[in-house]
Write a protein that binds this DNA or RNA. Structure first.
Lengths: 342, 342
DNA sequence: CTGTTAGCGCCTTCAT
DNA sequence: ATGAAGGCGCTAACAG
């Protein structure tokens, strides 16, 4: 490997001169610079990224920590990453996708700091070791979604108006005459599930409805979204045929609901209305009619959180900001009024 | 920042002992190891990634070099990344998504090596500076798609059977009676466009058809895929109404074709058949009927290329392999026989 | 404007 | 099984 020293020697200058030619941190006479650059090219020299990072204590990389179903990206992740990358690109940062499992991380050999200047954490859980760890090491952090309570006043986050959105869904369905609604919520350990439940219940209580707790179910992380949607719907609709609407955590769960409805001979939206929290970008021939959704905007979440993180990385002192990205109801074909003649 | 030295001092041992506790490169007595680990936890110590990488000359990171439309990921990229990440995950590597523009890279300050052990390069162009550069620096490389000719015998790649697949499309359409076919190919600088053209033309010539060169068009990188599909279709079908089929580079181009057909009052597939090279995962209400496609398998491409790259990184000597992932025709609703009574 | 001297935090010989 | 010393390639602080 060819180093700065080789270039310096060949050009008849000192290492620091070569360093400064590349870093442009101090003025170098034109002739010297050109000579150095010329020799560097001849020798095919490139400054070593790691050595540089070690010296300046910056990596120019931000991390994105995802925990997906079997680490598979969904449409939402895709939009999100597009937002993140776009902003990284503008500001000259790179993105490290972090999907190393907790399990793997606990191997001693791998308990190392991450090569990043900051990190975006998606879908925090109630006792998230990722947050605890980064926070302890003073690594700039932006969380997507509501952080666990103990951290809520300590870090920046970008979130949707989940509570309010859930209330809106409830009001929307109630207004259309639905009284027995099945809510297939996110896994209980995700902070988002609590937010949604809160808004949802408040809306129901506001109109004096004694809502049966039983009809809010939380996905287990052991089940895939599709399975959860399918199995739960079959079971619940069999037990309680008066259910006329289902609200789901995401579009895959909704797909499971569609399949269940089809299997049970129920028509959407005539017999069953479906609404999903989703970025609305999933279309599949199976998803007919098109899914009414509370439309998350993955790309905006991605770009906003990245801006926030980079701002924090560059800032002198710690700053805290919260950004709420509103999600709105997008009515498509999967919801309808309840027929009076039931 | 707390370093190895601090831990060593607190534990009453030497730096190298601490180092070996973490790296497990040489045996350490149980008591010492536990004491060190204990103190490390108390002090919240984590080995520094950059320092470690500098010393051992490994990063544990692989790079993925993408050049998309405005750096936006498509469905294909998504599947591809899922394949890559899955393999990274299994083998304990991390993924760096590299979308820094050429333009940006040319700023002197940024002409630095990448912090990766190897790189996957997507969609090579005929004179790809990315390949040239990595190759010159002896960085393990896997290319997705056919590399430029000068490198074809020098590096590993994973490709689809593009030439053969294009021939199959041609035969398929000819067999259904189509004689005037519009081929909206990939940009000319992408090596894949040549591959496809080759197979396509051979198939046409085989049945003795003098095919008019004019009907193969290449997307300009200045146009978005959708615009290219739309504008070209409108123009070509206006000039030559006898065209009964369109083959497209990807599903977004196909979407443009659908829009054009709709605008011109043509029905798909009755008046116009459409086939796309696509991973078949794009569905949108606009894409009705479902698109017949030569189905790329992004996930397999991703995982195979990653396996190949990691194998190469770990290998003692340079190895070269080629992997061909077949793509097959998936007939859906957008293609039909030509009516005889034309 | 340029050179010299110390590190950055870890790993790696070579000792013991 | 453990220490001590030198080096990975670069930057930074101080000189001039």
């Amino acid at each position: 490997m060819i180093t700065m020293y080789d270039v310096a020697k060949a050009a008849g200058v000192s290492k620091s001169t070569v360093s400064n030619v590349f870093s442009q941190k101090r003025p170098i006479s034109k002739e010297v610079r050109e000579r150095v650059l010329d020799i560097a090219k001849q020798l095919n020299y490139k400054p070593n990224y790691m050595a540089r990072s070690l010296a300046i204590k910056e990596t120019g990389i931000i991390g994105l920590s995802l925990i997906g179903e079997k680490i598979k990206f969904s449409q939402f992740h895709l939009s999100f990453m597009n937002g993140v990358l776009n902003e990284c690109y503008k500001q000259g940062y790179r993105l490290l996708v972090n999907t190393l499992s907790e399990e793997y991380k606990h191997q001693v050999s791998n308990v190392a700091s991450d090569p990043v200047d900051g990190e975006i954490i998606l879908a925090p859980s109630k006792n998230d070791s990722r947050i605890r760890e980064k926070e302890a090491n003073n690594i700039p952090l932006v969380v997507i979604g509501k952080p666990p309570e103990e951290f809520e006043d300590k870090l920046s986050y970008v979130d949707n108006n989940n509570s309010q959105a859930a209330a809106q869904v409830a009001e929307y369905l109630l207004e259309m005459g639905h009284e027995n609604i099945l809510f297939l919520n996110a896994p209980k350990i995700r902070t988002v599930s609590g937010e949604r439940e809160k808004g949802y219940m408040e809306a129901l209580e506001k109109i004096g409805m004694k809502h049966n707790q039983q009809t809010i179910l939380y996905r287990s992380e052991k089940l895939t979204s599709i399975d959860f949607g399918f199995k739960t719907t079959v079971k619940m609709l069999t037990d309680n045929p008066r259910i006329t609407a289902v609200v789901t955590d995401n579009d895959k769960v909704a797909l499971g609901v569609y399949r269940a409805a089809k299997g049970m001979g129920l028509s959407i939206p005539n017999d069953l209305s479906v609404v999903a929290f989703s970025d609305g970008s999933m279309f599949s021939p199976e998803l007919t009619p098109p899914l009414t959704c509370m439309r998350l905007n993955g790309e905006v979440l991605g770009s906003e959180s990245t801006k926030l993180l980079l701002e924090q990385i560059k800032a002198e002192h710690k700053i805290m900001k919260r950004i709420i990205v509103p999600i709105e109801l997008e009515e498509r074909g999967s919801t309808a009024r309840v027929e009076n003649n039931t």
